[in-house]
Nucleic acid binder design. Structure first.
Lengths: 138, 138
DNA sequence: GAAATAAATGCAACTTAAGTGCAAACTTAT
DNA sequence: ATAAGTTTGCACTTAAGTTGCATTTATTTC
């Protein structure tokens, strides 16, 4: 059994052909991808299947969904987080308005924010928009 | 000329009947509303008109769009910001997963975050999800 | 004030992404 | 090998956002 199979099993995801391919696909890039991106990367499979596959990954905690403000859901692998045993995804995301790519800045945690009385925080989502290193040329 | 008219004129928005009504509508609540919310609040007008009206408000800087992770665009009045002359909207938003309401926490600014070399920040969006004061009962 | 011009509105239709139902194909356990 | 459960593919539905165009309304010019 390959390494990829064992990752999926670790997340209790049955390693079917498409799931293995999608996991590889996600590993190959370090940016968040849309369902459309995934679809373009697969010639064989059907959109619905890919949709349900990524949702399965999400439910099992292998990927997290990112809402970067473009209006389309994006997904990215989320492995480190589970290794740490953290229940939530509190790193921040950067969306480049030039190349339209979104990356996880996993080393940049969202700082603590004190809320008004009575407000209970369960999750946070911080997206910074601007120009990424590739596009700024610096 | 009433106070409401003069606010619209200040933003260079011609004060038509629908625009005045929508502005009043937005003022009446202190939460962010969807286009559907607005639609439900108006019996007379057409969805497209309301859509274009809110987009006009947005273009002129009277409202800002909020992306709270629910997948639907929400809008909220944005007056203070222009008084301060700030170009961007850097306060944070709280989305209650219980009542599904989103509020602007205008007094809570997003803390400064240092990005990796080459990344240029132009805008930020921070949404905290959890339970609001009304729903937590505290 | 009437005609000409420009802006706003309402209707219909289109686009895109997300999501569901169901039957066929495939796995897994017995 | 069979039965049960899971996954996959196709067709269809829903929901939000958006555009084109004709009509109405407001503004400007004469």
């Amino acid at each position: 059994m390959g390494e990829i199979e064992s990752v999926l099993e670790k997340y209790q995801i049955r390693p079917t052909a498409i799931r293995l391919l999608m996991y590889k696909f996600l590993r190959e890039r370090n940016i968040a991808v849309t369902l459309n991106d995934i679809e373009s990367g697969f010639e064989k499979s059907d959109r619905t299947t890919l949709y349900r596959t990524i949702k399965t990954f999400e439910k099992k905690g292998l990927v997290h969904q990112i809402d970067d403000g473009t209006g389309v859901a994006k997904y990215a692998l989320d492995e480190k987080q589970v290794e740490d045993g953290l229940p939530q995804d509190l790193h921040l995301h950067f969306h480049c308005e030039s190349c339209n790519e979104t990356v996880c800045l996993t080393d940049h945690k969202i700082p603590h924010i004190s809320l008004p009385q009575g407000y209970i925080s369960r999750d946070m989502n911080l997206v910074i928009k601007g120009v990424c290193d590739k596009c700024s040329g610096k």
